[in-house]
């Protein structure tokens, strides 16, 4: 089995036809990793949104390097789209489908953790908890 596939594989598309300087790709990937760490080191000096955008852009760039060259997608036939397009659509679709729950909910979050984070002092929050079912609840509602 493997002999057959190897035979057809090596003749049908010979990777040696596409010379890639893999070491150069590796260096590029290392530089990308360095950039993401630098983003973290200098995160005080840049806007937070720029930091997140930059870090994620670097991650996408690295992913594209790996997929294009290490995984040889650049040299594969059109079948790669048949396999990757549906999964990519479903993967992104999943996040979009979940988005209403994180961004568009009508209710206010009323978890005890929210009270803790919202309270200025831990003690006050503790008091809120202790008096949860008592008349004092309204006093602490403003926190």
């Amino acid at each position: 089995m493997s002999e057959i596939s190897h035979d057809t594989g090596s003749h049908a598309h010979d990777d040696t036809h596409h010379y890639v300087n893999y070491f150069l790709i590796f260096i590029a990937l290392c530089i990308c990793t360095g950039i993401s760490v630098l983003f973290d080191v200098f995160k005080g000096g840049i806007p937070k949104s720029a930091l997140v955008f930059g870090v994620m852009a670097v991650a996408v760039a690295k992913a594209l390097f790996v997929m294009t060259y290490f995984m040889h997608l650049k040299f594969e036939g059109a079948w790669k789209f048949i396999i990757l397009a549906p999964t990519a659509i479903l993967a992104v679709g999943l996040m979009i489908a979940l988005a209403p729950d994180m961004a568009m909910h009508y209710y206010t979050n009323d978890a005890p953790q929210v009270k803790w984070v919202g309270g200025e002092h831990a003690e006050e929050v503790a008091e809120t908890e202790h008096s949860e079912h008592s008349e004092h609840q309204h006093e602490h509602g403003g926190h």
Partner: peptide, 9 residues
């Protein structure tokens, strides 16, 4: 079929 080994597909 596709121009690639079954294992790779």
């Amino acid at each position: 079929g596709l121009p690639l080994p079954n294992s790779k597909l």
